[in-house]
Amino acid sequence: MSRKIFVNVCTQDLRRSIDFYTALGFTLVEDFSNEQAACLRLTDSIYVMAVTEGFFTETVTNGVSTSGTQVVLALELGSREEVDEVADKALAAGGEKAKDPMDEGFMYGRSFLDPDGHHWELMWMDAAAA
């Protein structure tokens, strides 16, 4: 059975989030978006739901934390070049570098914070060499 994941991220500025994620290659799914949330498709099984803070607060029971990282979103990509391409797009679109690139030869990664401070890790790994 194929499953989908919808990662919900709280945003202070919905338009900024839409612009940021579409600059990275996500596709806005307008049928599942409104003034409170935007559905952004990365693949047929991975989506980001950028949700306004007010609406996000209504969906959780233990409050919304804005002090520090609560989750790291990790995404495997197809090559070192694709890691660099997506990371560079993120920085150009308003993200900021989270930490220095990691290069272990068989594994390569870069990270960024989106405009709302959500931590993303991009990585490529040569499974055969690992």
Rank of each mutant, 00 (worst) to 15 (best):
V64M: 03
V48T: 06
K89G: 00
I46K: 04
A38V: 04
M102N: 10
K97E: 15
M102R: 14
R110H: 09
I18M: 00
F26R: 05
G94P: 07
D84Q: 07
T66P: 00
F32K: 06
G105R: 12
D114H: 05
F55P: 00
D84H: 11
A87K: 03
T69K: 13
R80M: 09
D31G: 05
D126F: 11
G63M: 05
L24G: 09
Q70T: 15
E35R: 01
Y108S: 12
R110A: 04
A23N: 01
S111L: 09
A128K: 15
V72I: 15
T66W: 07
D103T: 09
D44P: 01
A23T: 01
D84F: 10
G68R: 13
E58P: 00
A93Y: 08
A128W: 07
S65N: 14
M123E: 11
L113D: 04
V64S: 03
A98T: 09
T22L: 13
M125F: 09
T61I: 10
A50H: 10
G95S: 02
A128G: 04
E121P: 00
K89P: 00
T69H: 09
C39E: 03
G94S: 06
T57E: 13
C39I: 00
N62E: 15
V86F: 08
A90D: 08
T61M: 08
M49A: 03
F56M: 03
A92K: 15
F20M: 12
V71R: 14
Y21V: 05
Y47Q: 12
L42T: 06
S33F: 01
L40W: 09
G117D: 06
V83N: 05
F56V: 03
D84A: 07
V64W: 02
M123D: 10
A92F: 10
F32I: 04
V64T: 02
D126L: 11
V86Y: 05
E58G: 05
G68N: 13
D31C: 02
L113E: 02
V48M: 09
G109A: 13
D103C: 10
D100K: 10
N62M: 08
A74V: 06
G105Y: 12
M102H: 10
G109L: 11
V86R: 05
D44Q: 13
E96G: 08
R110V: 03
Y47W: 11
H119L: 15
M123L: 15
A37T: 10
S67N: 13
G54I: 01
M107D: 00
V86L: 14
V64L: 12
A74H: 08
E82C: 01
M102W: 08
T66A: 07
L40P: 00
L40M: 11
G68S: 12
S111R: 14
D116C: 04
Q70A: 10
D31F: 00
E82W: 03
G25E: 11
D19Q: 05
H118G: 08
H119W: 14
G117N: 10
F32N: 05
K97M: 13
A50Q: 12
M123Y: 15
E104S: 13
F56L: 02
M107L: 13
V60G: 06
F112N: 10
G117W: 08
L122M: 12
W120M: 08
L113Y: 12
E82I: 05
A90M: 13
A37F: 04
H118L: 06
T59N: 13
N62Q: 14
